[in-house]
Design a binder for these strands. Sequence first.
DNA 1: CATGAATGAGGTTTCATTCAT
DNA 2: TATGAATGAAACCTCATTCAT
Lengths: 213, 213, 213, 213
Amino acid sequence: MTIRTYSADEALVQERRRQIVTAAAALFIRQGFLKTTVREIAGHCGMSIGTLYHYVGSKDDILSLFEEAGSSLLARFTQQSLSAQNDMTPAEALRRAIAEYLSFIDEIQDVIVFWYQETRNLPATHRQYLFQQEEDCANLFGRILAHGCECGEFRVTNLGLATHSIVVLCDMWAFRRWFLHKRFTLEQYAAQLTELVLSGVRGGGGQSVLLSE
Amino acid sequence: MTIRTYSADEALVQERRRQIVTAAAALFIRQGFLKTTVREIAGHCGMSIGTLYHYVGSKDDILSLFEEAGSSLLARFTQQSLSAQNDMTPAEALRRAIAEYLSFIDEIQDVIVFWYQETRNLPATHRQYLFQQEEDCANLFGRILAHGCECGEFRVTNLGLATHSIVVLCDMWAFRRWFLHKRFTLEQYAAQLTELVLSGVRGGGGQSVLLSE
Amino acid sequence: MTIRTYSADEALVQERRRQIVTAAAALFIRQGFLKTTVREIAGHCGMSIGTLYHYVGSKDDILSLFEEAGSSLLARFTQQSLSAQNDMTPAEALRRAIAEYLSFIDEIQDVIVFWYQETRNLPATHRQYLFQQEEDCANLFGRILAHGCECGEFRVTNLGLATHSIVVLCDMWAFRRWFLHKRFTLEQYAAQLTELVLSGVRGGGGQSVLLSE
Amino acid sequence: MTIRTYSADEALVQERRRQIVTAAAALFIRQGFLKTTVREIAGHCGMSIGTLYHYVGSKDDILSLFEEAGSSLLARFTQQSLSAQNDMTPAEALRRAIAEYLSFIDEIQDVIVFWYQETRNLPATHRQYLFQQEEDCANLFGRILAHGCECGEFRVTNLGLATHSIVVLCDMWAFRRWFLHKRFTLEQYAAQLTELVLSGVRGGGGQSVLLSE
DNA sequence: CATGAATGAGGTTTCATTCAT
DNA sequence: TATGAATGAAACCTCATTCAT
């Protein structure tokens, strides 16, 4: 993904693009990509339209930069997450992973909401890339669950489903914030969600019921 | 919610609006609200633009009608759902509620996806109304959980959270369909999700861990 | 070549496009395609920009329409030209063909000049089409020359060259008008050019000179 | 024609302008004047935009310089052409003049094509100047023809017409190259054109026909 | 002398909406 | 009631030119 620029000064290009994305992010998040005009973006970063187009080839490029910034935040989170340490029980590892991921979600909640809403407007290649980052991140949970199952501490019928469920329930902190933020602090949510998830993956008693399926 | 019309014939207004919303729904779902033009909508319902504007005041009105149609589908589902019957155990009731809701979700999955993406473009009052319908529907699950807790069959720390979690995990069938539909049939998904949810709400063994929070 | 329109009224589309092309032609001829703005065209045909774009998909479409109009004038001329009649001597046929073609050139001289200047901006397919029309028209002269050679009245070393030369010398009436129109009336030019051409194709005496090549 | 510069160093100005025109020429010829951007020109002559504007007042100035360069090529050709030497027959002189001019045309054919296409964008004074050069060059042929007529070797009804015809038929090598270059080498074209022209100016037999005009 | 970042007017095109028929 | 032609504001983007460094 190379974006057109008329400047050869790499550092300046980075700086200007940072400004542009910062302004654009706020606007995209507030009013969506399609309702945000390039003029607005330029205005919000104190640049003329001409200047903006010196550092960026099109409005879509701005969206790409925004998405890339978000994706790499996610990728960085995935890489830096050390959650599964050897001396932890699977339950401890899971609890910690949820807490970390939730606090990450909380930081970038606007971006998460944006992703749930506007992934459609991304070009296919970027969408694929974003999905990949999400998958990689989800695998953090997948590995913990898998290990827990091996230890016999967890019982999950379907690993993929359980993993996606956990991720989605964390993401929910962002996309159902109108409901959740009124009722929980982040810490409370983390605690309660962890409890719920742990129950879920430990597998309750009533198998008899389920086996009748 | 009163929408401008130049016609006095109530029945005709209803009929024309039904046509308009039907055409618009398909287009909104395929390409999003903002990328759909009024001309396209008129074309797809075999109406002239002028006629369309006789029965509808603006493009936003069409979105409102579309959302209202969706909302009332949801409301009807909520009303018709008889899930919690006296002679069922809470687990049976929950399983059945999930199955019913999932099959409803499956039917209107496009609308669900649309809601997750474009609720933003709704005027605040309509958004509130939609949220209300969702809340009402969620309460179906809430009541089952509450009853299960009273019976001692379920143990849920926070009822609201558990309820929303179930709803969101069902909605996931729509908004993560790119992942789930490749791996599960609807029935498989219903079965596995039910199992997971039942484990979650029954509360697993490892209380010691949780109490340490 | 189908051009986008939002109107289904075929007759109206034709009429509006005629207006548009008429206005555009004057402007294209005066200032060139690239320097002419769509706003100007709309202004000159008393239409709003929006209206113009109801009948035409793009500025390039207008150029295409203009070219097509010119090409078909040329094609019509080619078809209607009855020059080579049986009872004419080749010289008479040639003289008459030159006169007819020159008078046609004179009528559409602006278009001829435009062709010499802006063929470059045409999409390849239209350019090919235009070249074809020119070729067809040139063949009118080619056939007369060929017949004259068979009769022994003309002597032309290379038929293609002679043909193109005649055509270009006629076109010259348009593209060198700054020189020619000051010195000749159309009739004078026709007479003198005919004389020159006839001399040329009859082959002069001094072959000795030429044979020394 | 004085072009703004911020430099006092005459030699430097000349050198820089030479660089600019060289780069611009290639671009103008390839894509036309209006489609070529100043940025492109600067890029192609390894100069910054700012530097370019130190030596040239505007984009139009570059076109003027380009045209001037072409014009003076033509002027130099005109001056250096010694074609009409005393010891030559008019026919020999004409043949040689055509050969020389054609070979000059061949060298600068891109420029010729450009002239036929974009003279319009020149300011009136430059256009006049260019026309003057063309006239001067044409007079080379004019003088030969005049001399030939005096000698009784040529018979031309109208000297100006004959002269322009010869020039245009030579120029045709450039502006109809899509046709001619496929069928002739330059030498073949020179030979055949000469033959045709000589026939033309020698005046054929069929005067009876012409006198009937 | 040389640079290139900055500007903003102006280009083409779209589209919700109106209103005469 | 039904039509669809007409509108024009506003979208995205380009590019000749200036000027502070």
